Amino acid sequence: MIMIRAIVRPEKTNTILAELNSAGFPAVTKIDVVGRGKQKGVRIGDVIYDEIPKEMLMMVVGDEDKEDVINIILKYAKTGEKGNYGDGKIFVSPVEEVYTISSGKKGL
């Protein structure tokens, strides 16, 4: 199993979630976050905005679904044809075990 965390622009979230759902991946946790990337925020005049609003989408999928989910996020999170700074990041990590609290069942 794989945990995928995607930090994306808030205006892209609904499209990404709809596409994931259509592809058979409805289980997602969404969290409002703020932060900055390599560009160290955005400078407008004398003001530097270094807490830029983003949304984090988290999901656990089977190893065989990893590439499909990543490709959906990459396709629908990108702004413009080539993408832009601030479009986000995707983090992928292994998951050892998953349990459903209500049933105590192990696994997805």
Rank of each mutant, 00 (worst) to 15 (best):
R5D: 09
L20A: 08
D50E: 15
V28R: 01
L20H: 01
K75V: 01
A27L: 13
E11T: 04
N71V: 05
N14Y: 08
E97Y: 07
G24D: 07
I16Q: 01
D63R: 14
K12P: 01
F25K: 02
G45D: 13
T13I: 04
K54V: 00
N84L: 12
K106T: 04
K105F: 07
E81N: 06
V69E: 02
G45P: 07
V61Y: 08
E97D: 13
E97H: 08
P26G: 10
I2F: 11
K40H: 12
R9K: 15
R36H: 13
G86I: 01
S102R: 15
M58W: 02
Y99I: 15
E96A: 06
R5F: 09
N84Y: 04
D46N: 15
G41F: 09
S93V: 13
T15V: 10
Q39I: 06
T100E: 14
G86P: 07
G83R: 08
M59D: 09
P26S: 08
E97S: 10
G37L: 01
K105S: 10
S93M: 14
I90D: 05
V92E: 05
G107R: 10
V42L: 12
D46K: 15
I70D: 04
K89L: 09
V61Q: 05
G35P: 12
G45E: 13
L108R: 00
E11C: 06
N21V: 08
V98R: 05
R43Y: 08
K38R: 15
K75N: 06
P26V: 10
N71L: 03
K40V: 05
G104F: 12
T15G: 00
L17E: 02
V33E: 07
K89E: 06
D87N: 04
I90F: 06
G45L: 11
K78F: 09
G88P: 04
L57M: 06
E81H: 07
I2V: 12
D63L: 13
I70F: 06
V8W: 07
A23E: 06
I52Y: 09
G37T: 00
E51G: 03
M56A: 11
P26Y: 03
I52F: 11
I52T: 06
G80C: 02
Y76F: 15
E11W: 00
M3Q: 12
I70M: 12
M3R: 11
D50F: 10
R9V: 07
I16F: 02
K40R: 14
I72Q: 02
L17H: 00
M58T: 02
L57H: 08
I101Q: 08
V34T: 15
K82Q: 10
P10D: 04
I44V: 15
K105Y: 05
V33C: 05
R9Y: 02
R5G: 08
